[in-house]
Structure formats: structure tokens, C-alpha cells
Design a protein around this nucleic acid. Structure first.
Lengths: 181, 181
DNA sequence: CTCCTGAACGAACGATCGTTAGTGTCTAAG
DNA sequence: CTTAGACACTAACGATCGTTCGTTCAGGAG
């Protein structure tokens, strides 16, 4: 609920009064449930972190690297489309977290991105991807597409198909067969 | 100057007092130069729009599509690294623009992204890229990497080399030569 | 029934917000 | 020398901010 307004108007652009009105309640009443506005931001961030990690957990370990990347992209985009508000807070509004909570977010995100990077690194090391693959750049490219998705993904989109289209390009590239190097 | 604080703390997280202090001036004094806080956001957005378009203008028309995409990515990342604050406002803070100015931004961005998409569409139609290329998805992938860059690009990075690394992956893909389809 | 607890209320708090107004000072053109 | 304009100052405006307070009320436990 709070995530929706934070995603819509930004953390600093959303007042306690706005949140209270959205809940049909006086603003003072909110403090029976929270200690501060920061709490609401923190809760939304936690929800996002759990959703993204849970989605990654559904990717089987015993598939080739390419398949795992494709499924990881599917999983990520699904979270964005199904929990757009929470995903938006996780990707964009987290930076208004203060103190330890900002550090906690950064650790959470680092862990998430590292799980992604591992797909590429392991895939190359096992010979399932190009032996000359720049795994850092490749991971960054995919993570960029994933992290930017909240800006354009419509709420009910077919994210599986979209992820597959991204992956097809990523897998084989855009160069024409007959194009000279 | 205003762009720096907007990028750092967000538009709503930056007060007129903050801006005045950064300029070594009393906050009332700012109103000899602007009409409202919105003006500063608008100016930063305009600066960003001009920088990105000017960068795209440096890409020659008479190169193969692949080269133009590579150079466009170079140009974009260079703007992000060299004008990080303004780029951040253009990519993230624009949404706090009100009224006509929000619409103006959207038109500006649509135009920019369309120039990018044209590289892919024309490249495929001319046979310089894969004939079965999903140009919409490919453009979205590159634009995502471009638009996300402000979150991780260090200020003095070698963006040309980075752009080339991205392009190498985009051009030939990540799949191993011996990997079965 | 009484008691306790959780939740909501309405009013108020001090702080800060963006903005305006009136005044003073410096500079450069007439 | 006078004047106009640009720019900075201080002070204050009404509005809104996040938060606290004392109170009321409903419902379940004893």
C-alpha cells in the first residue's frame, strides 16, 4: 500500500497525510502501526528483496548456463510485472533509506547481482558459453535490462515471452551471418 | 549546480535552502534568477536532453548499422560519465516535472529513443544485421544498459572501452560455438 | 460486569517548506 | 553626478511536513 504511493510519487513526494488518506484514516492513526515513515520504506524494500531472491530460487541448478540465464531473466521480469510497486521501491526509492538500512539494502542487492553474475562466470568456465566471454559486461547488460524494466513494463505483460526475446538476442547477437567482421 | 543536488538527494529531497547554501547565498536571493524551484529542474532536464542529442549527432550516417550502434552507445555513455548529474536528472528526476514540462520531456525522450531504434530497424532492413532480428527488443536492451548506466558508472571511467565491450556481446552473443541449440 | 488492549480520533507541536516583500549595495550607462 | 538595474540581504508569509499527545471507543478475557 505504501509502496504504491512511494512508487508513484517518490518517497519524499509522499506525505504521511497522503498515506493516511489512501488508507481512509487520520494521519496520526498510522503511528499505532509504525514508528516512523522510514519504516514503511524499509518494509517495502524488504518485500522487494524477498520477492526477487525467491524468484531466483526457482531457477534449477542442473541446467546449462544459457537456460539458467533465460529463466533468471524470466523470474526477474515476472516479479517486476506482478509486484511493480514493490519492485520500483527496491530499484529506485531504496536510496532514501537512512543509516544501517541503506547499508542493509546495498548488501542485499550486491548478493542478488552476484547470483546473477555467477551464471555467466560458471557458464563460461564450464564451457557452456563462449570461452572468450566478458562475463562482467554480459552480467551488467542483463542486469541493466532487468533493473530498467520497472520504467516500461506494463502491469499485466507476458514477461516470459519478453524474457525469451531478450535472451534470444543475448545468446546469438545481432550481427548478420554474412556481415564481415 | 542544482542538478548535482537533485541527483544526490532527489528533487523533493533537495530544498531551496540546500541549493542556496551550496551557492553560498541566502535562499531568498535565488528568486532574483528563477521563478520557481521547478525552473531549476526544467533547466537541468533541458541540459540533459541537449547533451544526449548532441552526442547522437556525432554518429556518422554512412557507417554500417553495427558501427553506428557501437558509436551511439559510446556517445551515450560518454555523456553519462562526463555530465553525471545532468544525466541523472534526465533519466530519473524528470518525473517531478509538472504540467506541460513533463509532456515536453516525454516527447524529448521518445524522440531520442526513436533515433536509437532506427539504427536497429534500418540495419536489419538493409541486411547489415540478422534478418530475423527482433529490433524492438534489441533496441530496448541497449537503451536499458544506457539508461541504467548512471547508477554505476564512475565519474572518470573509460566509457569508450566499456561501450565496446557491451557491443561485442551484443554483436556476437554469449553462446558457445559448440553449444547445441 | 469490569478490565485491558489495540486502534482510531482530532488537535496540536515545532520545524521546515517554497515563495514574497522591502531594503541596501554595487556597477555601468546616460 | 545621476539613475537604473542587477543582485544579495533579512524578515516574514501561509502551508505543510513528520510526529506526539490525550482521549475515545470497541471487543475479548477474566
Amino acid at each position: 500500500m505504501a509502496a504504491r504511493l512511494f512508487a508513484e510519487r517518490g518517497y519524499h513526494g509522499t506525505s504521511i497525510g497522503d498515506l493516511a488518506k489512501a488508507l481512509g484514516v487520520q494521519k496520526g492513526s498510522l503511528y499505532a502501526h509504525i514508528e516512523s515513515k522510514q519504516d514503511l520504506l524499509y518494509e517495502a524494500m524488504r518485500e522487494g528483496a524477498e520477492a526477487f531472491h525467491a524468484a531466483l530460487d526457482t531457477v534449477p541448478d542442473d541446467l546449462p548456463a544459457g537456460e539458467r540465464i533465460r529463466l533468471a531473466l524470466r523470474a526477474h521480469l515476472r516479479v517486476v510485472a506482478e509486484q511493480l510497486d514493490v519492485a520500483t521501491v527496491f530499484v529506485r526509492e531504496w536510496r532514501y533509506l537512512e543509516g544501517d538500512r541503506a547499508a542493509e539494502f546495498l548488501a542485499e542487492r550486491r548478493r542478488y547481482e552476484e547470483r546473477f553474475r555467477a551464471f555467466f562466470r560458471e557458464g563460461r568456465d564450464r564451457g557452456e558459453l563462449r570461452s572468450d566471454l566478458d562475463d562482467q559486461a554480459a552480467a551488467l547488460l542483463v542486469l541493466s535490462a532487468a533493473n530498467w524494466a520497472y520504467t516500461w513494463l506494463p502491469a499485466g505483460a507476458d514477461t516470459d515471452e519478453l524474457a525469451d526475446r531478450f535472451y534470444a538476442i543475448l545468446a546469438d547477437g545481432i550481427r548478420g551471418y554474412a556481415t564481415p567482421r
